[in-house]
């Protein structure tokens, strides 16, 4: 699969409590399939996917398509693998934090996961997308959408109600995360020494980009 014919290698990591649906979520994203059997992940695993990313410029124009090779790390939620999985946090550029909408405890643990990320990720404020998974099980829902959104807003991260079973919002969540990463990359690359006319990741040239306000603290 990795034939080198891509423009960027982007690494994401899915984390969250055991059983929230991380593996299924990624499997749905990469293969479009769902397996309801529960097989706990042994420590760590990853899947790969090749996508084309087209950014939208500040004026809404669509940029050149970039071939992205995504490496999606799937971590075990179980406690006993915690030390192992935490070690992988530093390698990911973006995170998919999942919780189970039918399991309140998994939602409450989101705070813990967030603080883990703050400590172990590559920087203090990495790009994260919060996903309330299993939204198809509406009658078993234990976490309201509002409180979930509220939490997401508190952290300043996007929130999606997803379903690995029927694929709802799975692609969107990952696409948003990818977009965040690509935009962050843009900002962090020093503009000063890129010659004018160089086509950037989003397809714009130096001349196109105006001074974008640096919202997120870029630690690079």
């Amino acid at each position: 699969m990795s034939d080198g014919d891509y423009d960027y290698l982007i690494k994401f990591l899915a984390l969250g409590d055991s059983g929230v649906g991380k593996t299924s979520f990624l499997y749905q994203y990469t293969d479009g399939k769902f397996n309801s059997k529960f097989i706990t992940t042994v420590g760590i695993d990853f899947r790969e996917k090749r996508v084309v990313y087209k950014s939208t410029g500040p004026d809404g124009s669509s940029g050149k398509g970039q071939k992205i090779h995504m490496q999606l790390w799937d971590t075990a939620g179980q406690e006993r693998f915690r030390s192992l999985t935490t070690a992988f946090f530093r390698d990911a550029m973006g995170f998919l934090l999942l919780f189970d909408l039918t399991n309140e405890q998994s939602f409450l643990n989101v705070r813990n996961w967030m603080s883990q990320l703050q400590i172990h990720a590559y920087c203090e404020n990495p790009d994260i997308v919060l996903c309330g998974n299993k939204c198809d099980l509406s009658d078993q829902r234990a976490v309201s959408e509002d409180e979930a959104r509220e939490l997401a807003e508190k952290y300043g991260i996007p929130y999606f109600e997803t379903s690995a079973a029927n694929g709802q919002n799975v692609n969107q969540a990952v696409d948003v995360l990818l977009d965040l990463i690509m935009k962050r990359m843009e900002r962090c690359v020093d503009k000063s020494w890129i010659p004018d006319g160089t086509v950037r990741a989003n397809g714009n040239t130096n001349a196109d980009l105006s001074e974008s306000p640096d919202k997120s603290k870029c630690t690079c």
Binding site: S2, D3, G4, L9, V42, G43, I44, D45, F46, E48, Q71, R80, F81, S83, L84, A87
Partner: peptide, 29 residues
């Protein structure tokens, strides 16, 4: 170093397999 002695042989092997796949990807990159 992380102490992973609590993991079983099988688990360690499974993890090693994943790691080698990752190594492949890294190499290609």
């Amino acid at each position: 170093m992380i102490d992973l002695s609590h993991l079983t042989e099988e688990e360690q092997e499974a993890i090693m397999t994943v790691l080698s796949r990752d190594a492949e990807l890294k190499r290609a990159e």
